[in-house]
Structure formats: structure tokens, C-alpha cells
Amino acid sequence: MPVDSPRLLLVAHGSRDPRFAATARRVTASVASAMPGVDVELAYLDLNEPTIGEAIERSGDCVVVPLLFAEGFHSKIDLPAIIAEHSLPGRRVVQTPVIGSHPLARALADRLAEAGLCDGDGVLLCAVGSSDAGADRHVRHRAIELSTLLHRPVEVVFATKLGSGEHELLSAVRRLKATGARRIALSPYFLSAGLLTERVDTALDRLCPDALVAGPLGAHPDVVSAVTDLYADAAGFGPASDGRADELVPEGLRSC
């Protein structure tokens, strides 16, 4: 990268769960390692420090990359308002699309393989859930990509919309069982483990005690590639990744 490269500000949502901040720091370290010569800083929308507004005020030109998986209220309304409020005259602040705008189905498949996904497992993709219908549609599109990659049905549940008596979760599990799934495998479309992932884990454990639970995406190479590509595009350097995220060849699946 050129010596005058703008600072990269990674902005995460924030959480009271310490695991979230620890994961966000690991992602930041992986991105910094992949981008020598670029000043990389982590900031938060809420609940953790520093806030993105504080980080913008002490930065020169910078590129803001949201560590979010779908375009919703935070990326469309909240973050642009913060940038407008805290940007100083003469400084260029560019917000990129969310990291979920890049291919991440392979990353989800890798986490499932690491957890021990078998041929007969039915996959349940879990995301936060949003008041923005477009954000939820994005998650469903990602489920279709994962289904195509794994050659099996993938159902979607939202951690904030499990329904009364967890009806939505129960219905999704029943649909997977109806397709012949011998076991349910949970695929968290989350950056980090936390209270919301635990809510789904606990509910699923009551329904399917033998369920397989994959890890969150964290600092997966495709997450890092999404950040570096978004930064490079915004800074005018062109795509930076090696294209790995576009490979649709899952590895490590077990015939069990």
C-alpha cells in the first residue's frame, strides 16, 4: 500500500459480552497483518470503546468498514449519521458496504466442517434478524448460497425472532427433519459468540440435544479478505484478495 494510505477504521456493533470484543480484536489483528503499511483501528457503534465517532475525530483521511453482515439500520442510518456528525473539514471519510456484501458461504461451510459436519446433517443458518426486510432477505440469499455449496437444504432462523414458544425454530427443525436430516447442524452467521448465539444454542439444545454447533466466523480468511477488498476499492487501489472466497469446493465434510 502507498505510504499515504488512509487509515482503516473497522467498526463493530459492540456487546456487553467480553467474547465479542476479544473476537473483534482478533479480526483487527488479522486484517492489520494482511495490510502492512496501513494504520488499522477498531471502533464500536455502542457498548464498547472507542466509539466510531471518537476514532473519526482523531483520524485524518480514513475508510470505515462495517463488521456487519447485512445492510440494515446500523449501516444505512446510524453509521452515516455518526460519520457526518464527527467528520472534520478537509478530511475524507468513506464508508464501505458491510463485510456481508462479499461471498462468505465458503467461510460458513468451513466452520461447519471444522465442527464435524456429516453428509446426513441438516443445516440451520442463524443470524441476528433485523427490522429491515432487506437485511433479512440478504440472510436468506446467503442460505441459498450455502445450500448450493453443501448440496443440501439450509433453513434460516433469526435469533431475535424465534417466535412464541420458539415456534420459528421448531418449524425450521421439522422442515429439515422432513427432508431426511438425521442431525441438525447450526451455522451461526455471526462474527462472535455471545448472548444471541447462546439464546439459539440453548433453544436448539432443548429440541435436539445431539445438534452440532459450528463456530462463528471470527477471523476467517474470507472475512479478512472482505475487509481488505472493501478497503482497497474505497481507497482506489482495486481488489486486494486472492479470490479464495469465490471457491465453492467444501473441504473436510465427513461421511458419518
Rank of each mutant, 00 (worst) to 15 (best):
V3F: 14
G14S: 02
G14C: 01
D17R: 04
P18E: 04
P18M: 03
R19K: 04
R19F: 01
A21I: 11
R26N: 11
V27C: 03
T28M: 06
V31A: 07
A32N: 08
S33T: 14
S33V: 13
A34V: 05
P36M: 08
V38Q: 08
L42N: 03
N48M: 07
P50C: 01
E54R: 10
E54V: 07
I56R: 06
E57L: 14
V63Y: 00
P66E: 02
L67Y: 01
L67E: 04
A70K: 05
E71I: 14
E71V: 14
H74P: 05
I77R: 12
D78V: 05
D78A: 06
L79Q: 00
P80G: 05
I82M: 08
E85G: 11
E85C: 12
R92P: 04
V94W: 03
V98N: 14
V98R: 12
I99D: 01
H102S: 15
P103S: 10
P103L: 05
R106I: 09
A107C: 03
A109D: 11
A113H: 05
E114H: 11
G116P: 09
G120T: 09
D121G: 00
L125I: 06
C126E: 11
V128P: 00
V128S: 10
S131T: 10
R137K: 14
H138Y: 09
V139A: 06
H141A: 15
H141Y: 12
R142K: 13
L146R: 06
L149W: 02
L149M: 12
V156T: 11
F158L: 13
T160I: 11
K161N: 13
S164D: 15
G165Y: 04
E166D: 15
E166T: 13
E168K: 13
E168S: 12
L169N: 09
L170G: 15
L170I: 13
A172L: 02
L176V: 03
G180R: 06
A181M: 10
A181L: 10
R182Y: 05
R182F: 04
I184Q: 01
L186M: 14
A193R: 10
G194H: 06
L195T: 15
T197M: 08
E198G: 08
V200Q: 05
T202S: 14
A203K: 12
L204G: 01
A211T: 06
L212P: 01
G215D: 13
L217H: 05
G218Y: 01
G218Q: 04
H220Q: 03
P221I: 08
D222N: 07
V223G: 03
V224H: 07
A226V: 02
Y231Q: 02
F237C: 06
G238I: 07
P239L: 11
D242P: 03
E247I: 15
V249R: 15
C256L: 13
C256T: 11
